[in-house]
Nucleic acid binder design. Structure first.
Length: 438
DNA sequence: TCTGGGGTCCTAGGACCC
DNA sequence: TCTGGGGTCCTAGGACCC
């Protein structure tokens, strides 16, 4: 405050930082279109794992009013009739494109927080009231020229308002994918345009409650009674309201916080009823989760496994069990034994189980020497076990497709994941690079 | 027949301790 | 039968995000 007054007295311009939220438009669909010219300018949708529902649509598919989250089996025919191209999701491609995108952004800003596979918050210097549109246009062109991806840029005083600005940029045609809420004079009228359920952090439950109180848009939420909001939504609600008012409550987090858990869970393509099947699935997820931990140099101190019936089933059942480990580990052999033992506790013969998963929790950095006094294994034996796992990881990394794995993972699985419509194109797998015969 | 997966943060309530 | 206040940890579950 003092500083601010000093600036005014000195008659100088107050210089501030602005926050921009950048996201890739129709990201998954655009990645596919970027590497396959045939798909460009065509209606295209991407399916979730298991080819379950629609998770991305190209601009052309949006025009055809195909909805996000729609179950694939329900609109398969309609898509067919409309000539929409359908693809299973190809996460190695999207992950790789994301890395390239973030690297380009990094070179063009002061601070960056990678928020998701297709979104980043960045902090940029704003000289007093200066329009940042030229900078944004340049960045947008750069990304398009390098990656063939279109981005949207929303700029404002803080993260939540930058999110809103990004929404506005998508809505307002003339903005060409850029909107700066920070320099607009009539902020309230823009806030009125955003429905309360489109605000970052307000989901279906909360928006239902807000609407019952007569709060319909961002402006009304900003001005609503602070105590009532706090009583119902706690600090989360308070933060949202303060950010709507223009305060900075949410910092840009440049350093990725250390992960708190690693989860591998999946729906089955068909429901399962046998304990053996459940064990089998959990074993495969455990192998994967342990690999993930090792790749990130992490170890878990506790694990949870769970299973459940379909949300859509009349007979609801779900159960999880938690186990604290004697000492932190990322060794597949150790965890596998525990998980298989625990799986009996969550199994129930009378229910059709449709999903299961394992969670590795209380993660810490992997340290080889910190061994519990309760563990009597000799150093030599531990060395051998360590080497074996390392060898397995490196062979699998080199040859892909799990050339080596645990016996239990190799059994036939009738419930495995569906991914029938994979594009087959890849920039991360040398085998899949298209061959051109002249 | 078929409705994703992987995360985070927050709160409430119980158990336990001094 | 009466039997405090405050702290911490664990666990479950709700809500939200992309």
């Amino acid at each position: 405050m003092l500083l601010y007054i000093q600036y005014i007295i000195a008659g100088r311009q107050l210089e501030m930082n602005a926050i921009a939220l950048i996201d890739g438009n129709n990201f998954y669909a655009s990645c596919e279109q970027s590497i396959n010219p045939y798909l460009r300018n065509k209606p295209l949708v991407i399916l979730s794992n298991n080819d379950g529902c629609i998770i991305a649509r190209s601009a052309e598919a949006r025009i055809l009013k195909i909805r996000m989250g729609e179950p694939y089996f329900k609109i398969k025919e309609r898509l067919n009739k409309l000539g929409v191209i359908v693809l299973s999701s190809n996460y190695s491609l999207y992950g790789d494109m994301s890395k390239r995108l973030m690297n380009l952004l990094k070179k063009n800003c002061e601070k960056i927080e990678i928020y998701s596979i297709d979104e980043a918050f960045i902090s940029i210097h704003r000289p007093h009231n200066k329009d940042l549109s030229p900078w944004a246009r340049k960045l947008r062109t750069l990304i398009y020229q390098n990656l063939g991806l279109t981005i949207t840029i929303g700029i404002a005083e803080n993260k939540l308002r930058a999110k809103l600005a990004n929404k506005l940029a998508k809505r307002i045609n003339y903005s060409a994918g850029i909107f700066d809420l920070g320099i607009t004079n009539d902020k309230n009228s823009y806030l009125k345009e955003i429905n309360v359920d489109n605000i970052w952090g307000i989901g279906t439950q909360t928006s239902r409650w807000l609407r019952s109180k007569g709060i319909k848009n961002a402006k009304e939420l900003k001005d609503m009674n602070q105590n009532e909001l706090k009583k119902k939504l706690g600090v989360v609600g308070q933060r949202i309201q303060l950010e709507l008012k223009g305060y900075q409550c949410l910092p840009i987090e440049e350093k990725r916080n250390q992960k708190k858990e690693i989860r591998v869970s999946r729906s089955f393509s068909k429901p399962i009823t046998k304990l053996e099947e459940l064990k089998h699935a959990l074993a495969i997820y455990t192998i994967r989760a342990s690999e993930k931990m090792r790749a990130q140099n992490l170890q878990a101190s506790s694990i949870t496994i769970f299973t459940r019936t379909s949300h859509y089933s009349k007979f609801n059942y779900q159960k999880s069990v938690y186990k604290k480990l004697v000492e932190a580990t990322n060794d597949t052999n150790i965890i596998l034994k525990i998980v298989i033992e625990l799986s009996k506790e969550i199994y129930h013969p009378e229910y059709k189980l449709t999903k299961a998963g394992v969670l590795m929790q209380e993660l810490s950095e992997f340290t080889y020497f910190q061994k519990s006094i309760l563990n009597y294994s000799s150093k030599n034996k531990l060395d051998k076990e360590r080497k074996l796992i390392q060898t397995i990881d490196s062979l699998n990394n080199k040859f892909k497709n799990e050339v080596i794995t645990w016996g239990i993972a190799k059994k036939n699985q009738s419930w495995g994941m569906n991914r029938k419509l994979l594009s087959g194109t890849s920039i991360t797998d040398i085998e899949k690079i298209p061959t051109i015969i002249i």
